[in-house]
């Protein structure tokens, strides 16, 4: 059996749950609520929503962002401890979605924040969010 490095052992101990901070505009919030609720229940997979970005590993961004709100999102991102991951949900974050021709919304989120992963959909299915989080677990394990 291949011996695990001390760093990997340590990371395995740390990675028990991922703590999520939600930054949602518009309908994005309503669309992620089923994931928190009892039917899909994200806590069974080790995902918890936290109230402060300083405890969060993952930043969920959903809904359109305006030039005004993106600055607050950037400040939230800066407050998060390393290592951190940004997951953008929904078509609004990718192209502006139905606000593609709005003069006041951000069209490409990656210009403003280092997006790790986009989850497509309007809204994305809860299963898609779980798949994305499974990828984060895998990614972190590979990283160590």
């Amino acid at each position: 059996m291949k011996k695990e490095s001390p760093k990997k052992k340590k990371m395995k101990k740390i990675i028990k749950a991922i703590w999520i901070f939600n930054w949602f505009n518009s309908c994005g919030f309503a669309e992620l609520i089923p994931v928190v609720g009892s039917r899909w229940d994200m806590e069974r997979f080790g995902m918890i929503v936290t109230g402060t970005p300083r405890h969060a590993d993952v930043l969920f961004i959903a809904g359109y962002q305006t030039p005004k709100s993106i600055r607050k999102a950037q400040r939230v991102y800066e407050q998060m401890p390393e290592p951190k991951v940004v997951i953008a949900l929904g078509s609004c974050t990718m192209t502006g979605g139905m606000y593609w021709d709005s003069y006041n919304t951000i069209k490409r989120l990656e210009d403003y924040l280092p997006v790790t992963m986009y989850i497509p959909g309007c809204p994305p299915r809860p299963e898609a969010i779980f798949e994305a989080c499974a990828k984060i677990f895998k990614h972190v394990k590979e990283m160590s």
Binding site: D101, Y103, K107, R108
Partner: peptide
């Protein structure tokens, strides 16, 4: 104000 023209110029 033609917002489509504006968006094309500013964002895309």
């Amino acid at each position: 104000f033609d917002w489509r023209e504006y968006v094309k110029k500013e964002y895309y």
